[in-house]
Each structure stands twice: as C-alpha cells, then as structure tokens.
Design a protein around this nucleic acid. Sequence first.
DNA 1: AATGAATGAGGGTTCATTCAT
DNA 2: CATGAATGAACCCTCATTCAT
Lengths: 217, 217, 217, 217
Amino acid sequence: MSRRTGDDSTTSAVEERAARRRDDRRAQIIRAAKQVFAEQGYTNASISQIIANAGIARGTFYLYFDSKRTVFDSILGEVVEGLTARISVIALDDTTLSPRGQVARNLQRVLAFLLEDRALSQLLLNPGLTPDAESAQQLDAFYERITLMLTASLDHGIRMGLVRSCDTALVAAALLGAIRGVTRQLLRNDETPHIEAVVDELLAFGWRGVVVEEAWD
Amino acid sequence: MSRRTGDDSTTSAVEERAARRRDDRRAQIIRAAKQVFAEQGYTNASISQIIANAGIARGTFYLYFDSKRTVFDSILGEVVEGLTARISVIALDDTTLSPRGQVARNLQRVLAFLLEDRALSQLLLNPGLTPDAESAQQLDAFYERITLMLTASLDHGIRMGLVRSCDTALVAAALLGAIRGVTRQLLRNDETPHIEAVVDELLAFGWRGVVVEEAWD
Amino acid sequence: MSRRTGDDSTTSAVEERAARRRDDRRAQIIRAAKQVFAEQGYTNASISQIIANAGIARGTFYLYFDSKRTVFDSILGEVVEGLTARISVIALDDTTLSPRGQVARNLQRVLAFLLEDRALSQLLLNPGLTPDAESAQQLDAFYERITLMLTASLDHGIRMGLVRSCDTALVAAALLGAIRGVTRQLLRNDETPHIEAVVDELLAFGWRGVVVEEAWD
Amino acid sequence: MSRRTGDDSTTSAVEERAARRRDDRRAQIIRAAKQVFAEQGYTNASISQIIANAGIARGTFYLYFDSKRTVFDSILGEVVEGLTARISVIALDDTTLSPRGQVARNLQRVLAFLLEDRALSQLLLNPGLTPDAESAQQLDAFYERITLMLTASLDHGIRMGLVRSCDTALVAAALLGAIRGVTRQLLRNDETPHIEAVVDELLAFGWRGVVVEEAWD
DNA sequence: AATGAATGAGGGTTCATTCAT
DNA sequence: CATGAATGAACCCTCATTCAT
C-alpha cells in the first residue's frame, strides 16, 4: 500500500517526516495520559480528560492506541524499563569506583530520572493508581526484583565481612522503602533539589545502619 | 450519624437494642466495604460488590451511608484515627523506658494494628486506592504529620547530642519510608511474623544509621 | 437473599406478583425490540430505539437482558421454536386425516402463527436482518431442517407411487420457497386474509401446478 | 457521474484513457464493496473493509463515491437492471417458441446471471442486507413488478383457457417464491449446477405440481 | 427498617466522512 | 489523483443513586 514512485530505495523525506509526526503525536498523547493517570488513577481517568489534555479529538486517540489500557501499559512499561536501565549491579572488584560510589551513582541516575517526569513517578510510587490487580503485580514484580537484588548484595556483604549480620530480606525492604520515602518527599516539594546532596544524605543514613563499623572507611 | 453519646437517662431498653442493631449493621457494611476497597481500589469497587459481600440489599446500604464516598471516608478516618491513637510522643525524660524502648513500643503497637486488619493496611499503604486527589491528600496529611513528628524528634536528638547532624526532614522521610517498606513486605507474606523480632531489626537498622555512636548505650 | 418471614412454604402472593411483573416487563421489552429489529435489522437497530419504543430507561433494559445480542437471540429462539412446534410430521397411515389434509393443517397453523406476529415473521423471512453470519446460520439451519423434511416426504411419496418422480431436493426448495413467497405477500397486505382459502390455493398450486391439463401438450 | 455518453468528437486520446482508468477504478471499488456487502450486510460492512478489499486508500473511495450509501445504491441498481434486462414478456402469439419455452428461456437467463455473481445474488435474495427500510423497498418494488407481470400472465392464461382458474396474485407470489427458493438452494451449494436441468425441473413443478395424477382423489 | 426495580449520566469504543499534503 | 491522519456523532454498556412497595 505504500507508494514511492520515482524514489531512491531508502525512506523518502516525506515518509521520514510522516514518521516523525506520528511519533510526536504518540508522545503528545502519552504525555497527556501520564498526567491524567498520575492525578486520577487509571480507573478514574477518562478518555475525555486525556484527549482534552492532549488537545485532540476522540477518534484520534484510537488512531494511536488500541484502548485506554494500552496507553497505560505503554507508560508503565516505559517507567519500569527506564528505571531498570538506570540501575547497574554493584561490582565489588571494581577498582575505579568503591561500592558505595557505585550505589551513589545508581541512586543519582534513578532520582534524576524520577524527578525529570513527576507524573511518571507518581505512577511508580502508587501501585494503587493501576488498572487492576494484574497490572499492580507488574509493578510489584519490579519492586520485588529490586528487593531481591538488594538482599543478595547484603548477603554478599555479610559474607565479605562488610555488612553486619541481619535479616537481609527485611533490611532490603527497609532500604527500598527509605528510597521511596525520600523520593516521595522530593516530589512533594516543587523545587528541584540538589540531587547529590540528597544521595549523600540517603547513603549516610543507610550506611551507618547496615555496616560493621570497623570494616569501613 | 451515630446517635447517643451523652446518653440522657430517658433511653429505653428498646431504643438501646435498636441502636445496637444499627451499629452492628453499620459495622457489617464497613467490614464488607473495607475488603472490597482494599482489593479493588475505590473507583473499581462497586456498590454491588459491597452489598453482595455484606449480604444486604441495595437500598439498605443507603440507609446507613449517604454515598459510596461516605463509607470510604469513614474507613479512612478509622484507620488514621486508629494509628494516631497508637503513636505516643517520645519523652526523653521518661525514667522507666529509654527513648529507643519508647520507639519500639510505638512500632509494636502500630505493626500489630496493621497486621490485624490487612485490608485496612492496604488502603493506608496505597494512596492510589483512594477516590480522588483530595482523599489522597487526607492520607498524605497523615503521613506529613508523622514525618513532622519524626523530624522534630530528630532535631531534638541533635540538640541533645544523641543524633548525628543531618538533614532531619530527609532522614525522617527515609525512616517513615523504611517502616512502610517493611510493613508492605510483612503484608505480602501470608504468615503472621514475630512482631518483636521485626521491630528489633528495624530499630537496629534505623539506629545505627542516625546515631552518634559514642553517645548511646 | 429472599426473605419470607412468617409465611407458608409455597410462593407468597407478593413474590408471585413480583414474578408476574417481571415477566410482563420482559415481554414488553421483547415486543419493542422485535418491532425495531424487524424494521431496521439487528445492526441498525439501536438500544435507544428499543427503549424509546418500550418506554423504559436505558438501565432497565440491561436489568432484563445482558446485551442487545441476548434479546435478539431470545426472539429468534422464540420464533424458531414456535414454528417447529406447529409443524407435525405427515403420517401416511393416519386414517382420520388424509396426507393432504395433514399438510393443510400444518400450513394453517404456521400461517396463523406468522400472521399473528408480523414483526416476528419479518425476522424469519429475512435472514439478513440478523446480527451476523453465525446468527443467520441458525435461521438457515431451521430452513434446512424443513427442506430435509419435505425432501424425505417427497421421496416417500415417490416410493408409494403418490408423487411423480423428480429431483426431490430441488422441488422441496421450490415448495418451501412458494410458502415463503405467499407468506411475504400476505404480510405485505395489511388486512388479515382468510387463512383457509390461502391454504387451499397454495395446496392446489403445489399439488397440481398451474395448468389446465387438457389444454397442453 | 460517468462522463461521456454522446461523445463529442473533440475527445482526445488522453482524455479517453483517463476516463477508462476512472471507470476501471469505479468497477474495482464496486467489486470489492459487493463482496463485503454480500457477506456482512450493509450496516455491518465498513468502509475500512471495502477499501482494504479494493486495495485503495480511504480518501480514494470518496473520490469515486459520495458515500457508503451511494455505492450500495449503485450495486442494487445494477442487479435490478441486470435482471430486468434478462426478463422478456411472454408472447402468446410467438410462433417460434411456445410460452413454456419462453418462460424457460427467461429462467435460464436469470439463473445464469445470478450464478455468475453470487455476491450480487445474496443481496438480491436478502432484503435485510439493505441499508434501511427505504432501500429494502426498492428491492420490494422490483419483486412487486415481477409478481405483477406473473399475475398478468396468469390472468391472460386463464382467459385463454391455458391456466386453471385460481387466485392469480397468490399463485404468482408462490411462483416467484419457488424461483427464489431454488436459487437460494443453488447458491448454497458451491458447485455450479446444470442450469437447463434445473429449469426443466422447476418448470415441471410449476406446471404440474408434485402429484401423480392417477393416484389421487 | 428493608427491599430491589428503575433511572440516566457517563464510560470506552467505532466508524463514516473530511481535508491538508 | 491519491493519500491517510483527523474528526466527532453515535454506539453499547455500567453503575451510583432513588423510591415505591
């Protein structure tokens, strides 16, 4: 069905522009939807609000997304993916950056990502804004993954004599909770904070809580 | 909406029985609604589900509550009130129980309360399950109150030389987050945990993170 | 959920009246829907038209039927069932009524049934008014059944020496078509016809065809 | 909408080619639409299906037809016209072909036309596949015309002593119905039948009915 | 006090039609 | 000529709320 009459074999300029416009529209809708979902939650949000927010007609929405649910899943996928991409596993044998430095870098990237798109963060922090139990589980699964990573790190740290002996699963939950709590706090205030300072403070809090003192710094 | 508090002496036995029946019904509906709200969130929950769960007729529901919203607010009020009642301000001059002991007692009471009614806890932990932004703010306000209490305590601790110097607002947010994180974890597992052990672990985590080491037991 | 307090074990008068009212409503909706479907066809018909025709509110419709489709199926089932019940197999050994008489009786009952509810008949005569191919096949299956019955009768008649040798399947289709054609004609005219006369004429046509024997080849 | 009929001499070759291309496109769309309408009925059919079937873009459709309705009317007109052209009035004074032969020839032409384009025939046989009551009446009017022709022929035949005395309107309806019934049957089966044999059988049925004369009353 | 049939505003979605490119 | 993105009216259905019994 695509035409191309006397053109060279690569994508023509016209097609390129069309593709860009299409992506723009999609992004525009996602932006609008994200905001509405973050404010109202999935169920309460209405297509009417989304399209009003995006400044498009009812039918246009369905040109870019199959359903209300589809946009939401797109958004949720985006945030989970975005975060996952910003977290790298701590390497204890890294000679260029200390474990604590690596954690700091992870935190910095994550916080920067979250503060950049507050609506997205609201969705991430509130599993209840989600369409249904199934969707909430997608988020839960993400958090579970993080918690397991943290638990494993703590376990490893204990074996290395760097971390004091403790119920690592519980402490991991507490650590993740602390990060979420601080993030929530940051989002509440409108001014963008000095991320490095926040990370330092957060690390100081976490470190002094879990470490065996003699073994560190 | 509940009658009789001052209870003038003319109340007959008949009236008393009627009032008790009324309160029972109310409680029955609240119980049913709480469960449905916790599972589905406010918007997704339907009156149909609530009355089916309560085993009453549609009209009966509206005999006891003005609207769907009203039940929810009742429930939310109940949980906030219940928690507030279980938290007492730390008294540094208390000679019978150390500050740490007082915090432990608070935590124990709060966790016991939450684990006792899991549906309630879900609502508390997920502001997104709430009817709207306004209602979510009621919860936020509660958390804000707790955070301010914690901040004040930390500030006081710093002045007394018990707590290391830090961004107390941020650390307070982290502490509250840690508690929420652990609670969430506890609710996920079905088995009821040994609360004292959890509190010990949580305290150890928080303490070692915020204290000036030399100054404490 | 059903109550009954101090009542006898059988259905109470109240319940009976409620059941009757319920059936009345259902019938009222079916009546309205039948008319709309007959005039517009399934797809073109709208719930708005049906409820306007029935004089009820939107929600009320869904109190009695799960969906637009459900009403339609109810109606289609009713007509197929009604017709099937009015057709009895011809018994050649019946001593009280000749085969031709039996056919006449069948035709009379069928025509009377159809003329009694013209909307129903429209649906029966026009498979195209149906929701989809699947639903149309339900009708087709009915006609197929009738055609097979006719074919079998003709085959039997040939073996008995009563019917001239012919392509019975084709003649059966012609016979059924003739009946449908006449019915269509009757429905077009508003006045209710003298059914017996119609049946006589139809039978004469089927039996003997149209010619005056002596005058032809 | 189609240009050039009187065809003034100034038409250039270029214009001619353009006109032909235009007609081709039109035919292509009609072909696609016919199929979709026959399968789904007017209302169920969507422009999307038609253009997908025709392999053209959305806008192109509206370059050739004003609306969905317009294509349908074109198609309906085509079939009615095609049939009308294939039916010639019976001439009793024709010395080269007997009346029965003339009827046979009519039937052959009609059946051949219908079997040639099954989609068209579906539309013809199912007034319910039509946009609305108004459109259905166009079809009805066609059938009415045929019925009147048949009635007139029968009346004439009676006056000539060739046809037995009967309710000619009713018998005409039966005859037309028989033809439609047989056609429907032929369309159901996929294999193309031997038309002459069918016509013979159909004529025999109409002429003589189904009985073996000696065996009855 | 209790019931449940009835209501109608509002939800998500589809689709014939238009128009800038 | 041809395209396909954009439009918005209209569709089917849900559900909080009311009210006669």
